[in-house]
Design a protein around this nucleic acid. Sequence first.
DNA 1: ATGGCCATGCACCATGGA
Length: 255
Amino acid sequence: MKIATLNINSVNARLAPFLAWLDDIKPDIVLLEEIKTEYNGFPFFEISAAGYEAKVLGQKGYNGVAVLSKIPVNVLHENLPNFEDTQARYLEVQAGDVVISSVYMPNGNPTGSEKFEYKLKFMDAFNEHAEKLLKQYDKVIFGGDFNVILSADDVYDETLFKDNALCAEGARRRLTALKYLGFYDVYKTLHAKENGYTYWDYGPTAFVNDFGMRIDFFFASASMIQTLKSCVVDKDLRKIEKPSDHTALVAEFEI
DNA sequence: ATGGCCATGCACCATGGA
């Protein structure tokens, strides 16, 4: 099973190159974040023609998550079941005995604001739900944009972001707690020494100089990660004309 | 020496992203 996750920063603004990429990589499951459309604006026809069924939790203008699949999936949760939310940031499906979620955690800037409080509350609810899932299922995997820079190794210059919500101690502590619950950082399991950046600011110098951040992740339960074959950052989507500021993370499992 | 983007929406600026 090949699973990809991508913060696409508007699915409609990048549909053609995204479809070409799908045809090239052929993942079984694709998790999308920031589709930036409500359900009715989602390009179901084109995605279906490419061979994928789409489950969509949309929102007008902002946010929005989706799960595309070549294999049958059924939706378990739209939004976290334990968190009242007006924003579309979580979509959980089941494919066979695997539970897979697309996650778009809040940015939370500026620190100290209501947005920051919302970020921490979302992360608390997420961890609580993650813990419950582990008790119910063996194979669980989360993928998406977690909007947390876990350590100095995960950003080109940490000093520039010391007051940023992505580096905030409360955010780091919560994402680290997810690891202690038993969720493995899939990319780092195989690539401890590579930076694994998945995001580069728009602007002419960031991508060419690799001034990036690692803020997109897969987190997998133990029995899921035992089947891990590979995990790569696919930079091709960051090289297209009019790219998203994020690129895709692709993981393969022997399932 | 500084700053450099981009998508959306009742839309030619404001907001959000990170």
